[in-house]
Amino acid sequence: MSTLEIRDLHVSVETKEGPKPILRGVDLTINSGETHAIMGPNGSGKSTLASALAGHPKYQVTAGTVTLDGADLLAMTVDERARAGLFLAMQYPVEVPGVSVANFLRTAKTAISGEAPALRTWGKEVKGAMENLRMDTAFAERSVNEGFSGGEKKRHEILQMELFKPHFAILDETDSGLDVDALRVVSEGVNRAKETTDVGVLLITHYTRILRYIKPDFVHVFVDGRIAEEGGSELADRLENEGYDRFLAAKTA
């Protein structure tokens, strides 16, 4: 049982005009096996939360704490956070030319588990995971994300989630830009990881449609850099019908 605890988190992003505050006091506790959906309008700070948790250098934590089983996550470097069990499925995965998927996956797995995976079982595991995500195994020889379609990039992110077996996975708009088939495949992957590894999931999304495939235990509505409302999965249904207008109106009022 692991716990990711976010307390009064304030985050600024670096801009040309100087630091701009985005998150203004986020409180959130995620336990193993739980799925938390974070929803909200564009610009509400959802993706900033994802990037700040992973340690992206562009984001500065100005106040608050984040602990993973009591350890200070914010004191860790980006790679240390990943090795501590945090995984971020990125909204815009980056191309790494000349580095094959196979090499990348093995290198990352070795870094995360502290030892090289056994050659024979690893090969099978990768192949099996790729087949589950309906990825052609020829993918393994391609350069990381280079020339991948939007759907291929997202599958590749979920492939990593399944193979690296993190304690906590943040999915940053993994559903954006996916057609229905790809959305289903990707959601199946997330659900497999939940079943087999008891991973805690922070699912960041603008839309409710992915929540038909991945059932959230909790839904948090982000507005203007903090959580404006919380509830169970029924809150998602309400958002589906009402949209975010209610919250935006409250903000301007």
Partner: peptide, 17 residues
């Protein structure tokens, strides 16, 4: 950042690139 977010150290990530 992408590589380090997968647990790969900065030195190793630069080497890979």
């Amino acid at each position: 950042f992408y590589l380090m977010a997968r647990g790969i150290s900065e030195v190793e990530a630069r080497r890979l690139v």
